[in-house]
Amino acid sequence: MSARVEHLTTSGVFALDGGEWQVDNNVWLVGDDEEVLVVDAPHDAAPVLEAVGGRRVVAVVCTHAHNDHVNAAPALAEATGAPVLLHPEDRVLWDMTHPGRAPDGELSDGQVLTVAGTELTVLHTPGHAPGAVCLYAPGLGVLFSGDTLFQGGPGATGRSYSDFPTIVASIRDRLLSLPPETVVHTGHGDSTTIGAEAPHLQEWIDRGH
Rank of each mutant, 00 (worst) to 15 (best):
E78Y: 00
P154I: 07
F144H: 03
W204A: 04
D109V: 05
Q202K: 12
G117R: 03
H87W: 04
A72W: 08
T114E: 14
E50W: 07
R207S: 13
I194Y: 00
T157D: 03
P126I: 02
H124L: 07
V48L: 10
P165I: 08
D33M: 10
L176T: 05
L85G: 07
V168N: 07
E6F: 14
G189D: 06
P42A: 15
T193P: 01
R56G: 09
A51H: 14
T114K: 14
N25F: 08
G158R: 07
A46C: 08
S2F: 14
E203T: 14
T157A: 13
L8I: 13
P199N: 08
H124V: 07
M96R: 15
T192Y: 09
T80Y: 06
F144M: 10
V58D: 09
G19A: 14
T9L: 11
H200Q: 02
L178A: 04
V60G: 02
A72H: 11
D147P: 09
R91Y: 15
N25P: 00
D68I: 01
G141K: 08
D32M: 03
D163G: 11
F144T: 05
E35M: 08
A73F: 02
I205N: 02
S191V: 02
L93I: 12
T114A: 15
T10G: 05
V122Y: 10
H66I: 15
L49H: 00
P154W: 07
V115H: 04
D40G: 00
I171A: 04
T114L: 11
P74F: 06
L8D: 03
P199W: 06
P138Y: 06
P74K: 09
E20F: 06
V58A: 02
P180C: 10
V57G: 02
C62M: 13
D17F: 08
G153V: 12
H7S: 07
F144G: 07
T186K: 05
T114M: 03
V30S: 09
V38H: 01
L175M: 04
E89P: 11
